[in-house]
Design a protein around this nucleic acid. Sequence first.
DNA 1: TGACGAAAGTTTGATGTCAAACTAAAAGGT
DNA 2: ACCTTTTAGTTTGACATCAAACTTTCGTCA
Lengths: 156, 156
Amino acid sequence: MPQKTARPTQPTEIGALYFQLFNEIGIIAQLSGNRFQRVLPQGLTVAQFGLLNHCVRLGDGWTPARLAAAFQVTKGTMTNTLQKLEAKGFIRVDPDPDDARSKRVFLTPAGKQAREASLKALMPELAQLPAGFPPDLAAEILPSLERLRIWLDTNR
Amino acid sequence: MPQKTARPTQPTEIGALYFQLFNEIGIIAQLSGNRFQRVLPQGLTVAQFGLLNHCVRLGDGWTPARLAAAFQVTKGTMTNTLQKLEAKGFIRVDPDPDDARSKRVFLTPAGKQAREASLKALMPELAQLPAGFPPDLAAEILPSLERLRIWLDTNR
DNA sequence: TGACGAAAGTTTGATGTCAAACTAAAAGGT
DNA sequence: ACCTTTTAGTTTGACATCAAACTTTCGTCA
């Protein structure tokens, strides 16, 4: 195994490749997050909007633990997010009738409305994107990103 | 041109596509950041290591303003990062002889050493990555990500 | 049925980041 | 030369997040 005269890719080069990848991803996350944050109404954060959106698209009644897993944040973070949303009146958190440890998260009408308003506010932001970054490219790299995300998620 | 009876992609679908893209990117950034953070030595944060790494690869003597632009963070954030690194003895911040407003950031020997140690600590983390996410894929999507990052950067 | 490990949520303390207001210095225009 | 605008850096207050410790409840197994 130490016999490796013709290595196709040096470990340090591969490291640099992945490093660059995560660097770009980190900066994109930061820039897009800031951008969305700025246009979101009602003082909603990106995380809060994400949760409202999630509940609209996939249905509500989720437990905080499952939401935390879905968004890849700690349970403590989810507790915080839910408390903020409940304070704004956008969700309702009921005790789980079957499990006294657990809770269930439901959207309120105001929450659905806030999600609609957020989408409307986000649209102009997204609309100017295709000019610089065509949807084809987005669709092309999306499966790879999913794969990477899933791997990072399962192997930690 | 307005004749477009068979629209290939509805605006709302395109929105969903970009939305999913940023969502995946956000989660990957979070997961990889946490992962790196955990193995970094000396209480270094990802941002702090990034700065050390930057100075090694591209040379030091940068001003804080240029560093803030390079990392896409606010000047206040960069002030904070630099103060932490200076407190650890990893960088030296000198006044700019030509511009009394400005400063210059230099690596100390301890800083170079910390960067080396960080790379060593990061390697095992990166080494297990190719199994789930081959380098070819990384190399394939990297140009697109760069393009997206650059667009987000210039158009804000 | 009783005990112990696992799971759900919360709390605590620390940290990194942002936006915005502020000071100081340079640049530019008239 | 003076006044205005821009630029560099810091500070402040707020916030999202994390890790870790803690409480309560469930589930399992002996």
